[in-house]
Design a protein around this nucleic acid. Structure first.
Lengths: 169, 169
DNA sequence: GAAGATTGATTGTTCAATCTTG
DNA sequence: CAAGATTGAACAATCAATCTTC
């Protein structure tokens, strides 16, 4: 199965509209951001909590879910990962004792991922450092107005990148 | 050698300032963006040009450099990658005939990466599709005003993430 | 048969160690 | 010895194929 419901960016190449100076500057700035910021957050989590950003996202999402439980497919959507990637990661974290899986009793097609007490303790331990990093690198770097602008901009782009929304309703 | 000159995000954990609702919304939006957007661009380049985004960045940077030449360390900075990663990638692309390396004649500590004609043809071939994807997913999703805001926001965050600047002067 | 989920193989990235040059 | 660069091993992500359940 392909990700994103078989939707892909297949640009029409008949006529190329190159980026003007302003567009290019904005894109260069964003390009640096989308590459470097994850690297930094990844490094902080890896060093201080021995977790990847994706692993942290999985634990965090589960910790906020009712009964600390989410279907694999929904969890993948929430954490911006593919189902395949999630499956591998959950298997690893299962060995570490942070999560476990069970077939949905009502519908055997679904698999539920559940957070263990140990996994919960792990997020609680890792969260402060991660949040502090996010604050230092992003939040505190921006004015309150910019924060609002950023949300609008992010939402707009996400509507193009993931039209169906990051999580299935 | 560690990346980023041994600078790391080591937050002070004595007191945690959690994110309020507005901060959290902005961060969630940005988090989705920094993960999903690269995935999309990666997929487009991989499918249409058999290049990773990083490989494309390397070729693009070289194509715009004087004499199609850049030092490895400077090229790593420009492409937001580590020197180690760049070294591996350049080796692969050398085999593909897109680039080659030579020791700096003046100072043997430096290695120069050079773009071949074939490599140049490759960027020229790949660029339209990539630019179209950037336009579709980002540029055309935003108002002109937002584009300017985005650049300011990106620059501000980058100043925190990479204080020394993405490329060494 | 379709959707959710898993798997194994391939490929790419990271990390620490190493080598070289000035 | 410090900075630039490379290497190989360990690890993570991707892709296509497969399996299961309804």
């Amino acid at each position: 199965m392909r990700e994103n419901g078989d939707r892909a960016v297949r640009p029409d190449e008949t006529e190329v509209r190159w980026l003007d100076e302003h567009e290019s500057e904005a894109w260069m700035s964003l390009a640096g951001l989308v590459i470097r910021l994850p690297q930094m957050l990844e490094a902080q989590l890896q060093r201080d909590a021995d977790l990847t950003f994706f692993e942290y996202s999985v634990l965090a999402a589960l910790s906020e879910a009712p009964k600390r439980t989410l279907r694999m497919s929904r969890l993948a959507g929430l954490t911006n990962g593919s189902l395949s990637r999630l499956s591998h990661v959950v298997k690893r974290m299962e060995k570490r004792g942070f999560v476990f899986r069970e077939l949905d009793p009502d519908d055997g097609r679904y698999t539920n991922a559940l957070l263990t007490d140990q996994g919960c303790a792990k997020v609680v331990e890792a969260a402060p450092g991660h949040v502090a990093a996010v604050r230092t690198l992003v939040i505190d770097a921006l004015e309150r107005k910019q924060l609002a602008d950023l949300k609008d901009i992010g939402d707009r782009v996400m509507k193009r990148v993931v039209p169906e929304g990051p999580f299935l309703p």
